[in-house]
């Protein structure tokens, strides 16, 4: 599942919402969030929440009028998804 997710990060360009990706992978959004969190903890993805992190010199940092309120965005770290291309895994029954 995680390798399938990482392969998607490599193969599919552009943005996708958490809900759409969850539907694509046939998992709950909460489960997908857990998987993404696990990949972040492994250092394979990065989650960016403060999109104006570079504005430390700006006087309006604490009340930025132009901050776009999105939730977190998960990006692949460079070189972190370059491993084997994995075909979608079949459901693994216990």
């Amino acid at each position: 599942m995680l390798r399938q997710l990482l392969a998607l990060f490599q193969q599919t360009p552009g943005p996708v919402s958490l809900e759409l990706l969850a539907a694509q992978l046939d998992v709950d959004p909460a489960t997908l969030q857990g998987m993404l969190g696990e990949l972040v903890r492994m250092g394979r993805l990065v989650r960016v929440e403060d999109h104006t992190a570079g504005c430390s010199l700006c006087g309006f940092k604490n009340g930025c009028p132009y901050l776009l309120t999105t939730g977190g965005v998960y990006y692949a770290l460079p070189g972190s998804v370059g491993c084997a291309v994995v075909p979608p895994a079949p459901h693994e029954a216990p």
Binding site: F9, Q11, G14, V16, S17, L18, G63, Y66, Y74
Partner: peptide
Amino acid sequence: ESLFVLELPPYRLPTLRGLLTHMWRHSQ
């Protein structure tokens, strides 16, 4: 380029106080 995943916040009803605060901060 590679995929990236967005967490979209749920829809909610804005409050007048919140709107006025935003409006003033933006115009300040």
